[in-house]
Design a protein around this nucleic acid. Structure first.
Lengths: 246, 246
DNA sequence: CGCTATCTTGAGTAGCGTCAAGTCATGTGG
DNA sequence: CCACATGACTTGACGCTACTCAAGATAGCG
């Protein structure tokens, strides 16, 4: 008699998913909570969900059911305009909390899509509201995360409103570097999970301009690029791209 | 014996300032609360504050003390970059809630300045946190307001990332029109309270480009502009500026 | 009434978008 | 295992939009 089919069909929805034992807890929503409080919020996540590359986590217009925390993988969210115009509003990686754009109107205002196979924790919004009333520091954390999203958006506005093409790309690479670093990965060598097109959309540039800027950085020995593999050779030099030329 | 000096020196800090009797309550933080709940939050605002034209409501780096709701007047907030670059991140009018960028890090991340004499309600943040635990629908309102700020920022990103100069200005005018309208003012005739420079900074354009776009709209009989006085002659026409090209 | 800040308009230019050709990587079916 | 198809990326040539620089008009304020 053989065992059950195998790990490939593990039912993630049934796995025990407790924030208190999650390796990402210091990056994610429960960051900074004490052990005693952590226990209380272990019922926050009711299940894990797998999202395969190319699949939507949610679509604009869908009613808000839950917020999502990324466990693993890489995603993008896109905002849409009435006329069909679309723009990448952000790239997300493990520890990021998604879906906050839906709290205001009860419906999601963006499309969020997996750029590679992902695993997310589903946090039913009503449960989050209730628990954040009972656990003040959870309430505070939620406010912090939303506020940080607002601040991040201000940074993107600054980027889009007052930087030139190469400055934008430098800022983008430095941001990725910093986020990988905060998650224990190399700050100087990583694989991009998005296309030039998607980078361009995020930065308000055309893909050709992104490509040219990559080449220019390589020319200046700031980075080494081959397709999606990026190696930052001169972090200080990249940072210097941001200041001087106003 | 004469009366006290007169209204000019009324101490606004001492005035009774109850949300439940405020004419802006349906636009502001307490929107949608029931009368019973409204009473509970009447202690939310501890005082009114006057901010004269040109004065700062808060500066980037200042510790978070309170959030502010605009009672009257017009403000701008600016985000700063290390190198001194500065960009207007938003214009605010009565009913708007300010300061949410400071919740994440405990310090304000933008400068907020009065563009004309303003009156604001000061909402001490600890009080807001406590009351929003006691009054669930206040909690929900706060989340809604923060979420809407995130969605608004997405809209600005779209504007900065994928619109041409005239589209940006059209979107800007339509946004103002809609907000004035929601506050009971004319949607088609108003005075701008900001300079061309400030509009340009917000829209990621130079002031000359803003001025030229205004002139172009006037040429097309979409609006009438004289300095800061704007009259929208063809709302539908302005809206049409957003879709077609592309 | 004059000073200053703001706004308008013009001319020339730089930067990025557009169009197009060609290379490279990946995956699929024979 | 290789040939081929497809999508992603790079690079070049050219054009348009918005920026820069500059001069002049207009409004607000002391």
């Amino acid at each position: 008699m053989k065992n059950l089919p195998a790990p490939a069909v593990v039912d993630f929805g049934r796995l025990r998913v407790a924030c208190s034992s999650c390796s990402l807890r210091e990056l994610c929503l429960p960051a900074g909570l004490e052990a005693r409080e952590m226990e209380k919020i272990d019922r926050l996540v009711n299940q894990r969900r797998r999202v395969r590359k190319g699949e939507h986590l949610y679509r604009a217009g869908a009613p808000l059911a839950a917020l999502y925390a990324i466990r693993s993988g890489f995603m993008k969210s896109c905002v849409l305009y009435e006329d069909g115009r679309e723009q990448v509003a952000g790239f997300h990686m493990m520890g990021d909390l998604l879906g906050m754009d839906a709290i205001g109107g009860g419906r999601h205002m963006s499309d969020t899509v997996a750029l590679e196979d992902c695993e997310v924790c589903e946090i039913p919004f009503p449960v989050l509201q209730r628990l954040s009333r009972e656990v003040p520091s959870l309430q505070h954390q939620l406010h912090r995360v939303m506020s940080r999203e607002i601040v991040r958006d201000y940074g993107v506005m600054l980027l889009l409103g007052s930087m030139k093409a190469e400055e934008r790309l430098a800022a983008f690479l430095l941001n990725l570097s910093q986020r990988f670093s905060a998650r224990g990965y190399s700050p100087t060598e990583f694989n991009l999970r998005m296309t030039r097109q998607e980078i361009g959309s995020y930065l308000g540039l055309k893909l050709e301009t992104v490509s040219r800027s990559f080449s220019a950085f390589q020319e200046q020995k700031l980075i080494k690029v081959r397709q999606r593999h990026v190696c930052i050779l001169d972090l200080a030099g990249l940072r210097a791209m941001l200041g001087p030329p106003r």
